[in-house]
Design a protein around this nucleic acid. Structure first.
Length: 447
RNA sequence: UCCUCCGUAGCUCAAUUGGCAGAGCAUCCGGCUGUUAACCGGAGUGUUCCUGGUUCGAGUCCAGGCGGAGGAGCCA
């Protein structure tokens, strides 16, 4: 029996008779020659079925194959510049075929489809080249996140998904029944992270996060994955250095390990090559000035070239303003010191200027928006209690959180990075729903 | 919750002023030794989202509903 190999390893078996196992992407017939494009999960290539080589019986079997039929193909691997696929350049001269199943008529064709049609068939759509490539990039991004944090001395400490109360107290939560008492799906692990740093110094949590917002845009999901590092003895300035090292590592790792995937996605990686420290830093004050000066000049922003709206000091940036600001720099941009009023209650006010807080968002280039939100946390218990009261939050629910500041409080900071937004940015796709295998967008729970 | 747009063949779409329901792809049959979403010839394909209304006549106009897309607010 010939050895079974993966298509990704075809280049190491030139001249050998081998077997590959997979699914037929497409068959094109041309008289006495048929081309079988096969996927096996590791990549794709074509097997060339030639009537004089195979004989009538096997060639008739080849001609009976439908899209997505499952097969074992055996033949000789050879290099050929004309051979398509991923990684490409190698093909199989087919000698034998074993049909596992002739597939029924496959609904997804090489032509265009609407998004509703594709999302209804997400379980099949994942087999398509682009979705395969995006999902593989996501896995590399997730691995890079863990590798970097683990190597830098962070401890992965998991935080609960079933929680008793609001995290940040602002966004809408999914409510569930916890044996007769109300509970909520976590929208952040941050408060628990803050507890964990006092035991472990530098920690991160990494898992799904839930927001029941009625958000129906390309930048929002109901369920998304977020990594949240938290660091003791860390001021805002220290945090930004960590973030830029972290994000640069993720992007450069993806560029190195996902060349074939990004090429398949036709991603122009020029701007991604720039993603190296240091990242530019501007204050919220300066950002507002830049937006308003450009708005007065009649600046427009992609994708629809609509006019850039001006913004009063104290307001939060919308998507057009974030896109404009990010476009002014050649790499991701930190915007620091947002107004205290628009940010979460736990952010440390700037000394001598309490109307702004020691926060920083990281805006990705090319219109991908905020991929990180972070801040220095309030470390004084009295100040924190006052902030909780000011935001009309139920004080009792935060007793343990305040208590953290009563036993060895230290300056500390942390941030959250959205996995899907990062993957969408790196892969260059326009909508988050393709950056997660089974997207939960407003109004969709299946498949 | 609000604003804008859309719903016609398996898929993507067209249909003039309200006047016989159309094309490409996919599928099936035939042809071709290098295809990359092949090409050439032939064949079949409809609850025009639903309910009601106007009209001699509605895919088209009106009312209500359902489903979808994009955006706002909010955020990763």
């Amino acid at each position: 029996m010939p050895p079974i190999i993966r298509i990704a390893d075809a280049s190491q078996h030139v001249g050998e008779i081998v077997t590959v196992r997979g699914w037929l992407k497409r068959r094109t017939g041309k008289g006495k020659i048929n081309f079988l494009r096969l996927r096996d999960g590791s990549g794709s290539f074509q097997a060339v079925a030639f009537l004089p080589t195979l004989g009538d019986e096997l060639f008739d079997q080849v001609k009976s194959l439908t899209t997505e039929s499952s097969l074992l193909l055996t033949g000789e691997i050879r290099a050929d510049e004309r051979a398509p696929g991923v990684p490409g350049g190698y093909e199989m001269d087919l000698r034998h075929i074993e049909i596992v199943q002739i597939a029924e008529e496959y609904p997804i064709t090489p032509k265009e489809h609407g998004i509703e049609f594709l999302l209804d068939r997400r379980h099949l759509w994942l087999r398509s080249d682009q979705q395969w490539a995006i999902t593989r990039v996501r896995a590399v991004v997730v691995r890079a996140i863990r590798d970097w944090l683990d190597d830098q001395g962070f401890l992965n400490v998991d935080t609960p998904i079933l929680t008793p109360a609001a995290g940040e107290g602002t966004t809408t939560l999914f409510k569930i029944d916890y044996h007769g008492v109300p509970a909520y799906l976590a929208q952040t692990g941050q408060l628990y992270n803050e507890a964990n740093i006092f035991a472990f110094g530098k920690v991160y949590c990494f898992g799904p996060t839930f927001r029941a917002e009625k958000s129906k845009t390309r930048r929002h999901l109901q369920e998304f994955w977020m990594v949240e590092p938290e660091i003791a003895f860390c001021k805002l300035e220290d945090l930004l250095e960590i973030e830029e090292q972290f994000v640069s590592y993720i992007v450069q790792t993806a560029l190195t390990k996902c060349k074939a995937e990004l090429a398949l996605l036709e991603r122009d990686t020029t701007l991604l090559q720039n993603v190296l420290p240091p990242f530019p830093r501007i204050s919220y004050d300066r950002a507002v000035e830049m937006v308003n000066a450009a708005a007065a000049q009649g600046e427009t922003v992609p994708p629809n070239d609509e006019p850039l709206p001006p913004i009063p000091w104290g307001g939060d940036f919308g998507a057009p303003q974030e896109t404009f600001l990010a476009s002014q720099f050649d790499r991701p941009l930190f915007v620091t010191h947002y107004p205290t009023a628009v940010k979460a209650f736990y952010m440390e006010p700037e000394p001598g200027r309490p109307e702004v807080c020691r926060s920083a968002d990281l805006l990705a280039p090319e219109g991908y928006g905020e991929i990180i939100g972070g801040s220095e946390r309030m470390s004084d218990p009295e100040q924190l209690l006052a902030a909780i009261r000011k935001h009309n939050l139920p004080a009792g629910a935060y007793d343990w959180y305040v208590e953290l500041r009563q036993f060895g409080s230290v300056p500390h900071s942390g941030f959250g990075l959205g996995v899907e937004r990062t993957v969408a940015w790196i892969t260059g796709i326009s909508h988050l729903r393709e950056a997660i295998p089974y997207p939960r967008v407003l109004g969709r729970l299946t498949p």
